[in-house]
Design a protein around this nucleic acid. Structure first.
Lengths: 184, 184
DNA sequence: AAATTTATGTCAGTCATGTTGACATATCTT
DNA sequence: AAGATATGTCAACATGACTGACATAAATTT
């Protein structure tokens, strides 16, 4: 049930460009390695949380909302929309569930009473911590044999992979004030 | 490094555990930094392809199928199911479109005539190359100031993030062996 | 040869999460 | 008073997952 047809063909990063059959641009220069490692690494990384979320009847969308509300308390709905890059209708559905089930609470803004500032409840904090614990376990395990300089390089790489043309508030916090276009 | 909380609260990795209000386990040990960097990096990484795919009327699912069929020619349907970890009904819908529109062709297996081996057509190759080009541009840009040792560390990290309990055929190819080492 | 298993395909229905567009309400700004 | 802004909501729809059932052809086992 296992024929080994995997090692041949253009799986090797260089064989494709040399084949001459493909009009594709610079196929030999592609970072197939990083592209595929990112796919699998992210798949398994989020898989940790996905599995746990089933027990709560939640999905990935709930996790993202809970995560950022916990991490950046007092986040406004508009901020969350910027971070998640979804429509307010999509967010509204998920947010309503989290509010109804007591994972998040809203507080009216002090300066601007139109705003609904979002905070995680203890129940919400516990869920975020549980999920972050699973993902942290995977990360610390992956970093086990990597020294602090190596971790800095990994961090540098991941940061450089992120668009900074139009940073949202969370990204501004992550990058410090070094972002291109401060808003407000 | 980057501790600008734009709001107050436990955005700082340590303040939460010290607060004592949360029964959550070891909140201060969480790798919030890597967790969030992975989220944003992957979001923008796949965003490159997503945007381009709209012009073709395709989605992320089509991209994943095209990618792996191109990279591992002669992939069986069952292999693709292992890699993508979706059901055959979900795959079938996407695959049918790609076959109908001439991005992929099937060939009956030589040894086992039940198998349908999948290959990218030139049209399919062109699409994969275009999308991989966009993602490669982002990657090479992110790696610009990182030396070969640093790239090796990044690769090591990403590999260590991947589950190896039950590797599919593509992962076996990537990792070079069929060794089933538990991630630790 | 017959029975069973395997590889693939397909029909039908459901769910989660995204989308657009329109509109309502409260509140802030001008 | 008028307009802009922040949020919420209704309705309709698209994509890409899912489960379950069933069909067909080909390989394997009995």
């Amino acid at each position: 049930m296992t024929d080994i047809n995997f090692s041949r063909g253009p799986a090797d990063p260089d064989s494709q460009a040399a084949a001459g059959t493909s009009p594709g641009p610079r196929a030999g220069e592609m970072r197939w390695d990083i592209i595929e490692l990112l796919f699998f690494a992210y798949r398994d990384f989020v898989g940790d949380a996905d599995h746990e979320l089933e027990a709560f009847g939640f999905g990935r969308a709930h996790h993202r909302v809970m995560h950022f509300v916990y991490r950046y308390p007092g986040l406004k709905v508009a901020d969350l929309l910027d971070v998640l890059r979804i429509t307010k209708q999509s967010l509204g559905r998920v947010l309503k569930q989290l509010l109804d089930e007591g994972y998040i609470i809203q507080k009216t803004g002090n300066n601007d009473r139109r705003q609904r500032l979002l905070y995680a409840t203890p129940k919400g904090e516990a869920l975020v911590a549980k999920l972050a614990g699973l993902q942290t376990d995977r990360i610390t395990s992956a970093l086990r044999d990597i020294n602090p300089e190596g971790v800095a390089v990994i961090s540098q790489f991941l940061r450089a992979m992120i668009d900074r043309d139009d940073p949202d508030k969370v990204l501004e916090a992550i990058f410090g004030t070094g972002s291109k276009k401060p808003r407000e």
